[in-house]
Amino acid sequence: MKIGVVTFPGTLDDRDAARAVRAAGGEAIELWHDDAELKGVDAVILPGGFSYGDYLRCGAISRFSPVMEPLIAAAQGGMPLLGICNGFQVLAEAHLIPGALTRNQHLHFLCTDQTIRIENTETAWTNSFRENQEIVIPLKNGEGSYQCDDETLKMLEGEGRIIARYVGENPNGSRNLIAGITNERGNIVGLMPHPEHAINPLTGPSADGLGFFTSVLKTLVAGGAK
């Protein structure tokens, strides 16, 4: 199974994302922001970092990169797509998922090992977890505060589209402790903390993050997103 990992100018976590894909048993395919096609991949990860220096708004310029055109079309057609941190911001800017990520409430850049609770285990990226499983993975962001209007929040809560929530004190001011959400179909997931940095206790706080990558492989083996 081929999982594409997109590198934008300023992306940082592409190598760890590719490593996580390999650790889960998949084949990682490098995609460049300027690519006009997706090289036949079965799923795509938009990794973290500071694409285009976070100029204008985080993810705002990446969203119009050439690779995004085929990517948006494929994801709208059901291809699994995971946006981590800056990738989450790109998904929001591309309106593939509702809401927006804004400056952390306390203004500080965060870098910590964060406990999150997986609340939706039906998506293409979370089906390896147990419902309400608590996992510890790194959280590192300056603009990770998830914001949306009341109506959207009600819809996300009502439809079980909040896939992960922060446990304990709210680290960045996100509404309803939102750490990650999914689209209606469950193939697109945006996640603020970093599972790709937690695939081996030797190099991260846990191996808990691996579940996101084994989930998508399971989804693909089963014949795509539901």
């Binding site: 804004t102 400056r103 952390n104 409430q105 306390h106 203004l107 505060s145 914001q147 209007d149 001011g173």
Partner: peptide, 13 residues
């Protein structure tokens, strides 16, 4: 400008 209902931590600082 950020919409009035969106928290503006920079403005607050």
């Amino acid at each position: 400008m950020l919409k009035p209902e969106i928290l503006d931590p920079q403005g607050k600082a």
